[in-house]
């Protein structure tokens, strides 16, 4: 464990907590893409299948359990409890356009042609693009609530910090996983446009408004 990865995990945790707080306090899922949350749930399910078979550390297990349960809870809140506030008309990104290419790529490009490894690879590729429905929805509505933009900033920062972690592990631990690194870079690059808007607008106290 290094500081980059620890802070990265805490950013990820903060993002998920921020999202749950937003939903619970505002009693609404307005502006949230249920599709992105479904994809994130799928990422955790396919990545943490080894939760019970591969014990790494108490920290690792606790975080996996939290990520799994919170992402499933978020999907539940969006599609059942606060369904009335779900803005389905603007959450129209076709998930199959992400699921099918990621599945095919995971079958073709992976470290080992085994079910666990292919599912792990699929979860890595899917995580890189899972935010697209949410970013697409914001581009359609043209705005995002401030707390939703904090959520996105924390979520985007987590994988950015993981890139630093992979650099660190490459130089100091001789550990390197090209699939995770390339997907992580793609994932972080997808947030760049949002990072720019977040820093120039939200941090100036303005609401996140996309240029019409």
């Amino acid at each position: 464990m290094n500081a980059f990865r620890l802070v990265g995990d805490l950013c990820h945790l903060a993002a998920i907590v921020l999202l749950l707080l937003k939903i619970w306090k505002s009693r609404s899922v307005a502006g949230l893409s249920g599709k992105s949350q479904i994809l994130f749930g799928l990422v955790f399910v396919t990545r943490y299948l080894d939760l019970v078979t591969n014990f790494v550390s108490p920290y690792n297990t606790i975080m996996k359990v939290f990520f799994l349960s919170s992402s499933i809870a978020t999907v539940y809140l969006i599609y059942t409890k606060f369904k009335a506030t779900y803005d389905g008309n603007h959450d129209t990104f076709r998930m199959e356009f992400l699921l099918i290419p990621c599945a095919l790529l995971a079958i073709v490009v992976n470290h080992e042609f085994s079910p666990m490894e292919i599912l792990w690879t699929f979860s890595i590729y899917l995580e890189a693009v899972a935010i697209l429905p949410q970013l697409f929805m914001i581009s359609k509505t043209g705005e995002a609530e401030t707390i939703t933009s904090h959520y996105l900033f924390a979520l985007g920062s987590y994988r950015g910090l993981y890139i630093m972690n992979w650099l660190y592990r490459y130089y100091y631990e001789n550990n390197f996983d090209v699939i995770a690194v390339v997907a992580g870079i793609v994932q972080t690059v997808l947030y760049c446009d949002f990072f720019y808007l977040y820093i120039t607008k939200v941090l100036q106290g303005k609401k996140l408004q996309l240029p019409a």
């Binding site: 591969n54 990520f67 001789n174």
Partner: peptide
């Protein structure tokens, strides 16, 4: 042995 790098990350 070298722990599989990805398996100890979230």
């Amino acid at each position: 042995e070298k722990k599989d790098p990805k398996k100890d990350e979230l």
